[in-house]
Amino acid sequence: MKLIGNYVDWIDDKWIDYVINNDGRPMPDKSDLENATETQEERDNPLSMHWTTGRPLIFPTLCYQYDIKNTDFIIDAPWPMATHSEWWINKFMPFMLGPMHQDGSRTNEPNVKYYRYWMPLQDYEQGHIFIYEHTLITDYKKGDLYLYDDPDAQHCAGNSGWTPRLSLNITAWECI
């Protein structure tokens, strides 16, 4: 994870109020689960599978997700980025834990370069889990912007603390 800079002044606290005070989309999405079918690749390597599909039926709700479809705000990143992007905010309530996974499916597309960004919307608190590869990310500040060294890196998030954990996630991509 490479720290790009801090954008705390760019964060609109209305986003945080909205996320704290509104239900997000419970993940994994039930419709995804109902329609999920495993591919051979997924059977061979469960960690390659996007965590909204299939196997995480054994999980309860992993987190609540917010994006352009279920919020009343639009996030337009001010930092230089690839031409296409999508964003979502994850809210992990205490005791929620998502599995280790890769965001990989899209990055398999040829001639497309992907960038994965992660920005905490709070200062680090003990119990707030973001594990990238084999490292717990700690000591961050609200608004710190990180870029994955490897967009396919395994990672997971959860909350063993007592306050909601909020983060902004962005995937950006461009044809090469």
């Binding site: 054994i58 599995p99 119990g127 959860g158």
Partner: peptide
């Protein structure tokens, strides 16, 4: 701990 179990800090 099976999948998804988590002990609070």
């Amino acid at each position: 701990q099976t999948t998804g179990m988590l002990i609070p800090m």
